[in-house]
Amino acid sequence: MDGPMIEARNLEKRFTVRRHREGAFGAMRSLVDRGGNEVSAVKDVSFSINRGEMVGYIGPNGAGKSTTIKMLTGILVPSSGEATVAGFTPRESRKQLAQQIGVVFGQRTQLWWDLALADSLELLRHMYRVPEKRFRENLNRARELLVLDDFMHTPVRQLSLGQRMRGDLAAALLHDPKILYLDEPTIGLDIVAKARIREFLAALNRETHVTVLLTTHDLADIEQLCRRIIVIDRGQVVYDGELGALRNRFGGKRHVILDFDQDPGDAISTLAGNNLEIVDHNGPRVRVAFDRETTSTPRVLALASHHGTVRDVSIEEPAIEDVIRQMYEGPDSQHP
């Protein structure tokens, strides 16, 4: 297929938030009365994702992540803008598009609570009209990589969260989707289960070149799986690019820990103001934070050497969490 696998062009979704009335007549009145406030869950989102990319789609709660994905799957019709996914316009071809995508929600399941996992998968085989041979192959691969055999015949409601997630992943992949939407696939899982799922996804992407759009609050998911991230805040894309470049651009502060051979005393406070700040001063150990754009580590060392002999230096890169948090809480942010 030519062109990008997923393309969003100026997607916007407005919702009317209605006043809610109680009781029989309240319900009837709500049907008639069109009053309410309009809010934009997604204001203006554009991006383009190529086949085989694994992209992290992140943003704070309520930023519009899920709303975007719902528009990309055809469940929600955009108020304006257009999307093209796997060659389809989602709003017009929900059913055909469904055949091309697999979806995993960490917080809900597409399996049937009362059915055994094996039976749920069998039902999905009919739903997606997966040929018997292909179904066997995909099922065997999933059983092996996700280690499903211990609970294939257990009703889904009795599965642990980690087992259920593995079952849901297997379910989402039975029909060889071109695109996989993962919505918080590791939420609530323990470290071992998270690692297993990440390994599986990385291997899957390598082997099948499935295009993956991943939303998560666990940035370790992103760091281990995605080279590219799209950050959305209040309905708008605020960053689209490489994860590494994000650090440079939004930087966050780099911390340098200076160990002097003796306590430099209060005089050290004169360091501050040279585009750096003293975060902590405890005896001979001083922690300095600075913006990597305006100051460099050698310059900090040079400045520090006026206050005594620096015995040891260690540098801490900003954690990606801090970088992202700083983006959300940026100067023009209205978050409380």
């Binding site: 719902k70 469940i75 059913k95 055909q96 469904a98 809900r108 597409q110 739903m127 997606y128």
Partner: peptide, 14 residues
């Protein structure tokens, strides 16, 4: 109400 309808609407079915 629960939002579970999302998974049903993501199926290639009427």
């Amino acid at each position: 109400r629960t939002g579970a309808i999302v998974t049903d609407m993501l199926k290639p079915l009427s």
